[in-house]
């Protein structure tokens, strides 16, 4: 075949640059597409994500500037408003819109002001859990051997503690149950799942060829962990964290309901109060409950959407 070029020096580079040239013009709109970018594109076209993101955004605004939503003071015991006054559904966004509770406080204002505590507890616990569980999981998974054996048994031990019971026992020993205290208690008991997920992901990633390649180049442990292992192992942790954020909010409410939660305005406290007068004034319990359910649902939906975007195979 005389007409076919036999020389690699000519054939190979010219071939690829020719093909490359063709591709550049075709691929122009998607010049760099990182995996995170792909996931983000996926998310934006997912209505579950849009709904949950809008809800969460609204909740965040509520938590940051509750004054935008209500003029009423959640702690103002307005005895002029009769004890257990019924909601005035015509008075949109007014203090008496959703009625008053047993101590004459606006149910609407308390539902708005309760957002901050719930989100702070949820987010704070999640951040702490991801750091604590992530680090423990990464160390156990990456170093293996006896380190893994010790850390894994430690994880098992903590997993054996019933989450709510453990939190109740711990919080019971505090009289001043501020937000950091509640966060610390929840995170102390909640890191195990993240650690397990992280450990599993790290074990998968550390045996891949690109980690071997980095080692072969002489990369140090720090570079391997933070450049190669972590970015590829973090995705399942993000999913778990997003879903459990909602769970921690629920847990905080449960603890407050049991009288072992936050001191101050919180949905859990209001639900607890409302429970006492549920026969005569259902609204006291109803509205904080709705807020709580919607918030938890929004985070669980967000986690679900993120899971689908990061790992399209599960769809």
């Amino acid at each position: 075949m005389p007409e076919l070029t036999k020389s690699a020096d000519e054939a190979v580079p010219s071939a690829t640059t020719a093909a490359a040239g063709a591709e550049v013009s075709e691929d122009k709109p998607e010049k760099t597409r990182s995996l995170w970018g792909d996931a983000w594109r996926d998310l934006r076209s997912n209505w579950i994500f849009i709904v949950s993101a809008v809800l969460i955004l609204l909740l965040l605004v509520m938590a940051a500037w509750p004054g935008l939503f209500t003029n009423a003071d959640p702690n103002n015991k307005d005895l002029a408003n009769h004890y257990l006054q019924h909601p005035n559904y015509g008075h949109w966004f007014q203090a008496d819109w959703l009625g008053y509770d047993a101590q004459g406080r606006s149910v609407y204002a308390r539902a708005i002001y309760g957002t901050r505590a719930s989100l702070l507890v949820g987010a704070g616990t999640t951040v702490l859990v991801v750091i604590l569980g992530g680090v423990i999981g990464m160390i156990a998974g990456y170093f293996g051997g006896w380190v893994d054996a010790v850390l894994s048994r430690l994880t098992d031990m903590f997993m054996g503690i019933p989450f709510l019971l453990g939190a109740m026992v711990m919080l019971n020993s505090f009289t001043d149950r501020s937000i950091p205290v509640v966060i610390a208690a929840l995170a102390f008991l909640g890191w195990t799942q993240t650690a397990r997920v992280m450990r599993g992901a790290v074990i998968t990633v550390k045996s891949t060829d690109y980690v071997q390649a980095a080692k072969a180049l002489g990369a140090g442990t720090g570079r391997i962990l933070f450049r190669h292992v972590m970015p590829n192992a973090i995705a399942p942790v993000i999913v778990v964290a997003t879903i459990s954020l909602g769970v921690y909010i629920g847990a905080e409410a449960t603890l407050s309901f049991l009288g072992l939660g936050l001191n101050g305005v919180s949905w859990g406290n209001d639900i607890s109060d409302g429970g006492n007068s549920i026969r005569v004034a259902q609204w006291i319990m109803l509205y904080p409950s709705i807020m709580l359910s919607v918030t938890v649902l929004a985070f669980i939906m967000l986690g679900e959407a993120v899971r689908n975007a990061l790992d399209p195979k599960t769809r």
Binding site: L35, Y210, A213, N232
Partner: peptide, 21 residues
């Protein structure tokens, strides 16, 4: 030594970190 001995891996799909350019 590492600088002077390098390696090319079998599977081009797993030997490059998917999150790096």
């Amino acid at each position: 030594v590492r600088r002077n001995i390098q390696m090319v891996f079998q599977d081009p799909y797993t030997s490059l970190n998917p999150r790096m350019t």
